[in-house]
Design a protein around this nucleic acid. Structure first.
Lengths: 147, 147
DNA sequence: TATTGTTATACTCTATAACTATA
DNA sequence: TATAGTTATAGAGTATAACAATA
């Protein structure tokens, strides 16, 4: 297989992607810190603002152990950003959901994540379309005409 | 300013970049774990394998407090991957440098980071060039023709 | 005085294992 | 029995503040 190319062009793209990744995380953590949230807390709040879900599913989304989620949601709950609700269908399950304050905070957080959006403003619609297609193919997703 | 676009195309690109970021970190941590290293330890070892440096400079590179570096280097040193050397020019300074084993480990780590390289193999040289130019412009770097 | 690295402290995130309540 | 969530525990990363050695 020809999976490990080391030509200068490939290496430069790899480095550029590394830079994107670093900036993305940097800005994400800054935005979270602006709301006195850790990265993990901001991620959970963001998840729940899209859709309330059981503790276990949060763990799956975060790719961490369920026991960790207990603490993260505890801290969000203490701050009044999230609440635990019973699941009528299964009394073992607790559904975590954002409070009104939590939903507002999540929205503000999303709005302040300008890293990915702002630099994209430098690109024309045509450029963005090219970038989208290249990233899709890189990620092995179905192309524009498939799926 | 037109920095906060929310058209579907922009949002999809933002999401794709998020996916790239997530996969990048995932693979990085897996590669580190394969050597029983945490992400932070792997990052420091990678840094030092390029160039030995004072503790304080490691902290700057990692964007964390110098006090944290003490512990990370301690753990790497305990495992025989890194050593502290005196700086002849300034006796306050300790230069952290990889041992021979540390240098080998760093090289293996680098070789196993196929995430960025492998999916790029899906793209032609022309595609990679386009992607490089788009990323460069996104990151505000000088274009191909500029200094 | 200022700087380098360290120590002490407290908090968060993490995995593992054992526990309770429910299915 | 199996599953959902929690608790207990220990290790690692993080920031803050205070310290010793050196500049």
């Amino acid at each position: 297989m020809a999976t490990s190319r080391t030509d200068p062009l490939t290496l430069e793209v790899v480095e550029l992607i590394g830079t994107v990744v670093a900036r993305y995380y940097e800005e994400y953590d800054e935005a979270a810190a602006a709301h006195s949230l850790t990265g993990a807390q901001a991620r959970v709040l963001g998840l729940l603002s899209l859709e309330p879900m059981p503790m276990r599913r949060i763990a799956q989304k975060l790719k961490c152990e369920p026991s960790n989620v207990t603490g993260i949601v505890d801290r969000l709950e203490t701050r009044g950003l999230v609440e635990r609700r019973p699941d009528p269908a299964d009394r073992r399950v607790k559904l975590a959901a954002p409070t009104e304050l939590g939903a507002r905070t999540a929205q503000q957080l999303r709005d302040s994540l300008t890293f990915a959006r702002e630099p994209l403003a430098e690109l024309s619609d045509e450029d963005r379309t090219m970038l989208r297609d290249l990233l899709r193919r890189m990620l092995g997703e179905p192309g524009p005409s498939a799926g």
